[in-house]
Design a protein around this nucleic acid. Structure first.
Lengths: 241, 241
DNA sequence: CGATTGAATTTTGCATGCAAAAAACTATAT
DNA sequence: ATATAGTTTTTTGCATGCAAAATTCAATCG
């Protein structure tokens, strides 16, 4: 079996410039990354090369190259002669990673406050009000997507792609967990309050203030995730008994 | 040719626990990383797979896996069907990366000021005086190694391995450049002054202060690197003419 | 019945082979 | 001489094969 059918799935239209041909192992990285981030592959799950090859319809070479990349990103762990498995964070690691994120986000907020254009600020305001609208309609998905968009915009306004790339990479390691905690009812009021303060700080170009808010905001998110985690742990131990 | 001779180089002694067998592609990653960080492979240098295989005495599979990892780390760039080359930073990228580093170092300093033990502080003090000694003897290598050790200790005292790993990864991207600028005569006085201030802030457990010093310290380093860069650019253009 | 040793199976790590793409080279035409 | 088209060579991307390590399973022993 050649990879013709798989290729067909990702290939561009037959006509016109092929713009930028993706390589197989790159698309494989993206596939597996999605699986992990969206929780299809749960933390601790063993990744069998042969199995994955079959489901993805590719041979082992590009798969193994993809696994190396994912390991470098910290999404999976590879132990010699024993294969790969989805990374599983201890509570300590989770706290540390969130702490790192809080530092990155605070820094990017500080830069953004200095560098953001009026147009970008307006965009963020619009997203903010759209988010409020979602809140009144109890539209969870819409709420979270606006929320994420606001943070992305701030990151972009920091005008530092090295920072943004690092932010994205670290965020991915937490995404799978955040994904789960997003099914909880958010603490609307405090979150809305935080975002209100963030807007004020941005308008005042008060980098230090924004930085402090973002940092605390993320530490609150960490606690929310930790709560979900421990609740799941309890459920798991009850099931075992 | 099998890889028997290469293996012999990295294999442990025949007796006793094999402790932790390294895999070929991991050692290859480390090799090439060293080459890049120490400037043996210069920025922009094309990495021919066949050539590298021959010099390292391995086949293409582990080499390619290693290249994927190095690309994920940002040390090399791979373009489809055109192979890999050592990453070359534009001045803008260099500024951004240093800015990111300044943020990471500042954050880790802030945490370290809160969390450092008295013993660690004493160690740093010792390194500080050893560094001063090197200065009076004009021992450049010794000076830089103590300098690096102090920054590593601060990072360690932050008690956050996610932060440390990110710090190390970003630092590697700059290492090759810093390596070159280290052959310049350092600005002893201002550097010593900075380090003096850092110690004071640490003793006072003043995280914000330490954070600010580290940030500025790194931005100064950035300027030193930029100077060397532009000087080399001038030299290169003269040679071409 | 549990523990232990040894064979069978699976899985990983690496080398090699083949096809497609890119690069280098040559020859022809303007 | 330069530009272009065609051909050869090199290089990259992926699949496959084989050996070593690990895992599973079974049989034997205590």
């Amino acid at each position: 079996m050649q990879n013709s059918d798989f290729d067909a799935g990702v290939a561009a239209s037959p006509l016109m410039p092929k713009v930028e041909r993706q390589r197989l192992h790159d698309t494989v990285v993206e596939h597996i990354r999605r699986f992990i981030v969206e929780g299809v592959l749960e933390p601790g799950k063993k990744l069998n090369e042969r199995e994955l090859c079959e489901t993805l319809g590719i041979s082992r070479t590009p798969l193994r190259e993809a696994l190396k990349v994912l390991a470098a990103e910290g999404l999976i762990e590879i132990s010699p002669n024993r294969g790969a498995s989805v990374s599983k964070m201890s509570e300590a690691e989770l706290r540390e990673t969130f702490e790192l994120m809080s530092g990155l986000e605070a820094f990017s907020g500080e830069l953004a406050a200095e560098r953001m254009t009026a147009a970008e600020l307006a965009e963020i305001k619009a997203l903010h009000y759209a988010m409020l609208a979602c809140r009144t309609q109890n539209d969870l998905a819409g709420y979270y997507s606006r929320n994420q968009a606001i943070h992305d915009k701030i990151n972009e306004a920091a005008r530092n792609s090295a920072l943004r790339q690092t932010y994205v990479a670290v965020n991915r390691r937490l995404q799978a967990l955040r994904f789960r905690s997003n099914f909880q009812i958010p603490k609307w009021d405090s979150a809305i309050h935080d975002h209100d303060e963030m807007l004020k700080a941005l308008e005042a170009r008060d980098g230090k203030k924004l930085s402090a808010i973002l940092r605390q905001h993320l530490l609150d998110k960490r606690d929310a995730v930790l709560q979900v985690q421990s609740r799941e742990d309890v459920a798991a131990s009850v099931l075992k008994a």
